[in-house]
């Protein structure tokens, strides 16, 4: 079954409207930041190749719309994700409060195999405006309470820690993918070797 040459990993970015999901993706993939202020419709994705554990993998990063109206579209986008990035705005504390809701939304819609072990990465964005999140400790404890969750504070504007965060994303996604592959393709079924016998039994 191992015909593929390279792991192809799907990553979903979720979070409230205006926290910088699109900007993060752009900073990571294109190393650019734009001041353009525009809501995302539906979803969009970019890809980037990255090396994890000496393995070249392709990250397909899905940027989603934070608008309430689009929350219900999740299932079409979330399916098959290997890692989910939850983004909030360190300058807007209420966007952190929504993380729980986004996480639940994702788990419900994507319905991964093991809800509790599914990898999440939480990103507090816009550290260029405010160096440290007010909710830093709250977020830390939220993350540690959820199992497989890492936490980063980044700035999509100046690129601070973006690379690092997505490296972790790639790492986790690869682990998840490897895990799933193992489960999806268990050891092959052994066909009974009794062909000769049945042949002998033929009395035609």
């Amino acid at each position: 079954m191992e015909t593929r040459k390279r792991a192809f990993l799907k990553v979903i970015i979720l979070g409230d409207s205006g926290v910088g999901k699109t900007s993060l993706m752009n900073q990571y993939v294109n190393r650019r930041f734009s001041n353009e202020y525009k809501a995302t419709i539906g979803a969009d994705f970019l890809t980037r190749d990255v090396t994890v554990d000496n393995k070249l993998v392709t990250l397909q990063i899905w940027d989603t719309a934070g608008q309430e109206r689009f929350a219900s579209l999740g299932v079409a986008f979330y399916r098959g994700a290997d890692c989910c990035v939850l983004v909030y705005d360190v300058t807007a504390p209420n966007t952190m409060d929504s993380l729980d809701a986004w996480r639940n939304e994702f788990l419900e819609q994507a319905d991964p195999l093991h809800h509790d072990e599914f990898p999440f990465v939480v990103i507090g964005n816009k550290t260029d405006i405010q160096a440290k999140s007010e909710k830093n400790s709250v977020t830390q404890s939220w993350c540690s309470g959820k199992g497989n969750v890492s936490y980063f504070e980044t700035s999509a504007k100046n690129g601070s820690r973006v690379e690092e965060a997505f490296q972790t994303v790639a790492q986790k996604a690869l682990e998840q993918d490897t895990e799933l592959t193992k489960e999806a393709y268990p050891s092959p079924i052994q066909l009974p070797q009794d062909n000769n016998k049945s042949h002998e039994g033929c009395s035609c």
């Binding site: 390279r6 192809f8 999806a184």
Partner: peptide
């Protein structure tokens, strides 16, 4: 690049 996810889902 093949991704086995489709198959995975189906199989599951």
């Amino acid at each position: 690049i093949l991704s086995p996810r489709t198959n995975k889902l189906t199989k599951r």
